[in-house]
Amino acid sequence: MSFEHPLRLVLAAAITVAAAFLYDRLTARKTSNDLVYSNVPFFVESVQPRAWIPAALRAAFVAAALFLGIALTGLRLSLPLPSNAGQVFILLDTSGSMSATDVDPTRAQAALAAARAFIEATPAGTKVGIIAFSSSASLVQPLTADRDLAIAALQNVPEPDGATAIGDALALAAQNLPAAGHRVVVLITDGVNNRGTDPNEVAAYLGAHHVPVYTVGIGTNSGGTIPGTDEEATIDEDALRGYAQVSGGTYARAEDATQLRDALARLGGVVAIERRDVDLTAPLAFAGAALLAGVFLTGLGLGRYP
């Protein structure tokens, strides 16, 4: 939340207080709708009139003044709004450990299936790109709004083999993302960065440029060894959590295909929602004016002005 003219907050407060005072003065006037009654307590007790209606009108009048007053300050709020202009890079780990079968059928196959579901769930208009990485990173599919093209590109993702160059993948995504807009990176990996650029640096760079990195760790703790090797298939969860944290994203852990699909489905919402600074001057002014008109019209209709 920010104010273009913060000093006008004082003016807004003064307007609100003055409105409350004015309303009370106006309603204190003797009007044709005054009823002098013998015994007000008897009336109130026996009739139980709806005192909340005049109270609500007064509250609405004061709220209208408050809205109009705040409208003068140029209030801006950062609000999550639906977006179909998102741009997301899916970074798929294709290192040798992704061929582990602790996730059915293999980590790599489950990741591809989840990525496919994720792409299908993105709002129309959202641009999706795919980067595969193992010992190095490669651009499988540049950003495209054509979901069919992106889904078809998943077939071009290489088979699992090699080391894990998470930093290189993040850097490639950074290079291929536009300089502005609603941008997101989704990193699906099971491994520990053991090649190339330091992922922390790149993640921090992305975060500084308002590109959150959402990391998804895939695999069980007892993932066993990488097929064909004696190397243990492990996850460096702390590192993945760190990449997310420094960039403004989140980390999720998926131990099977269902969890992976669910995690990516949740990230679909992140892509569909964009947090934007919204200037509330016009809406507040309109709401204040509408409320004010409503109070006056209601008051007139109910026999009292305001």
Binding site: L35, V40, V44, P49, A51, P54, G301, R304
Partner: peptide, 22 residues
């Protein structure tokens, strides 16, 4: 009652209340 709508009740011996009379 002679009035409808938003009514200000004034007590003949003091006091008062604002009320909606429907």
């Amino acid at each position: 009652l002679p009035l409808r709508g938003l009514v200000r009740l004034r007590g003949a011996e003091g006091g008062g209340a604002r009320a909606y009379v429907g």
